[in-house]
């Protein structure tokens, strides 16, 4: 089931008097499915944050439509279902985290008990429990980011929209957020996020959309990118027919055509059955590759190609 559907949306900004309009998003179409982690990547100024802000109703598209569970955005009260973390969340300096979460819970219709329980749980997970009564102005950048995540998740939304969730976090903070996103995914929540940290996007996402200059350049499915599994063996193999492709994928192999080369990524648990299958089917192994081309390499390649 589709949770969010962006259909041919365009948005141009007016930078000021006598200046040409800047096209932030142009005929962008993609969808986010229920229960999946959808990562949106792209260079600075590609239109990622604009897309997220249009979804939240902070800005309106010039053309096109955004559907939320099949209904136009304007006709649907979405804010109870969405938890949003903006890039660099600026929170109220003189409030403490407990007060901020109380505000969040009350606006979302939670009672005091639910606010307390959810708040304590999130603060424990994100290691903010000891800082809950400290003014937010004394928080470090990473702590503010984690506080923003608590703010986004307090009302237990079914869709979580994160704009650069790992920004400003140290490795421990990143791990916390990573684990939290995986936990949310395990709970069946839909996660739509954008990030510059491609390694994290690659590890977290089921599907990835690459946008450049406001257009969707490519949509990667799960088999297109590696999961950063060091024990994966990558082989160059001869051509396959459709049945062989399907059977190899069923055994856990991932296939990718790179120019004239057909690459097969074999995860650790599938070494033996895939090897047997290759022998049985007399599929020639032409060589090996030390690594699967990472999302970062693909990203750089596509962006350079677009710029040329």
């Amino acid at each position: 089931m589709l949770e969010i559907c962006f259909s041919n949306i365009s948005k141009a900004y007016d930078p000021g008097l006598f200046k040409k309009k800047v096209q932030a998003v142009s005929n962008l179409s993609f969808d986010v499915r229920q229960g999946e982690v959808f990562g949106l990547i792209g260079p600075n100024g590609a239109g990622k944050s604009t897309t997220i802000r249009m979804l939240l109703g902070l800005i309106r598209p010039d053309s096109g439509s955004i559907l939320f569970r099949g209904r136009p955005l304007r006709e649907t009260p979405i804010h109870r279902d969405i938890g949003y973390l903006p890039e660099n969340p600026y929170l109220y300096d003189h409030l403490n985290l407990l007060e901020l979460l109380t505000f969040c819970g009350r606006t979302s219709g939670l009672d005091a008990k639910a606010i307390f329980e959810r708040g304590q749980g999130l603060m424990t997970k994100l290691n903010l429990l000891n800082a809950q009564k400290r003014p937010l102005r004394t928080f470090s950048k990473g702590m503010l980011q984690r506080a923003g995540i608590c703010f986004a998740l307090l009302h237990n939304p079914s869709i979580v929209v994160l704009d650069e969730p790992m920004s400003g976090l140290d490795p421990i903070g990143r791990k916390m957020v990573f684990d939290l996103v995986m936990e949310l995914k395990g709970e069946g929540k839909t996660i739509f996020f954008c990030s510059h940290i491609l390694n994290d996007v690659e590890r977290l996402s089921d599907r990835i959309g690459l946008i450049n200059r406001g257009r969707l350049v490519r949509l990667f499915e799960g088999t297109d990118f590696s999961r950063n599994d060091d024990k994966t063996v990558v082989l160059r193999i001869s051509e396959l027919d459709a049945t062989q492709r399907h059977e190899l994928q069923m055994m856990g192999g991932r296939l990718r055509q790179e120019g004239v080369e057909l690459l097969l990524a074999v995860p650790e648990g599938s070494y033996y059955p895939i090897n047997r299958y290759l022998e049985k089917q007399e599929i020639a192994v032409l060589g090996g590759r030390s690594e699967w081309v990472s999302l970062e390499e693909m990203f750089m390649g596509i962006v350079k190609e677009e710029a040329a």
């Binding site: 606006t107 219709g109 986004a152």
Partner: peptide
Amino acid sequence: HLVLSKPL
């Protein structure tokens, strides 16, 4: 942005 992302 953060405040208006809530049902307000």
